[in-house]
Design a protein around this nucleic acid. Sequence first.
DNA 1: TCTTTATTTAACCATAAGGTTATTTAACTG
DNA 2: CAGTTAAATAACCTTATGGTTAAATAAAGA
Lengths: 121, 121
Amino acid sequence: MQTDPLSTKFAALADPTRRAILARLALGETSVTELAKPFDMTMPAISKHLKVLEGAGLITRSRDAQMRPCKIAPSAFKDVDGWLEDYRKLWEERFDRLDAYLQKLQAKQRKKRRTTKRKGA
Amino acid sequence: MQTDPLSTKFAALADPTRRAILARLALGETSVTELAKPFDMTMPAISKHLKVLEGAGLITRSRDAQMRPCKIAPSAFKDVDGWLEDYRKLWEERFDRLDAYLQKLQAKQRKKRRTTKRKGA
DNA sequence: TCTTTATTTAACCATAAGGTTATTTAACTG
DNA sequence: CAGTTAAATAACCTTATGGTTAAATAAAGA
């Protein structure tokens, strides 16, 4: 596995079970047993998933009696979002260029229609 | 590996070599040999990385003589961005609550300063 | 203190990931 | 056609991942 924080985060997010756990945690802090319920999986498996999420800095854990409640880390998605930001620009530009191209195309077609005085479809 | 598109994309992004390839492709379409240059890695390794990126729908490939130029797929990051969107809301709310809390705290401190008439630091 | 509840750790297994070298395929070039 | 360039495939190796069962740990409760 890669050791840089961004790789670790993407790797953690690459598993549907872990994303489902995050989705549950988005509703609020909860226990491991509670988190495990929706899954057809043993507790140690869930425990490992939580360790991966924690290791990636996506969740934090506390203690409440025997329970180890989990919650989403405050700035969990900050760097992932920051990374995406660069590419967001890229595809917005791409979209802008496409948009410009389509407008040019439409202008050309309008011009054509004017010169040919509505001959074809 | 998981087979759903989002997992496949996150997994593809979880490797720094692949992210570097994407960063290079953000500058424009280019050949495999060109893409390979910055890395201390054999061609087959790069070839595999490109296959992963293509399989995730992050890049597309064409043909130009013996070359197989790669470019970033038009809507490469759309679903990843969409997924993040939900959590963006979450942490904006979290931030809003923190902000509200801090404002309340400051208000309380101003009040305190007024009643104690600047006694301590 | 013994038991129960909540969770983790250890040991193991199958499969996937990321790399290698050697070989092939594909297309241009002389 | 023979040779060169660009890239992919095959076969292999090592390590990581995602799961299991069985055992250990931690805290609360009778």
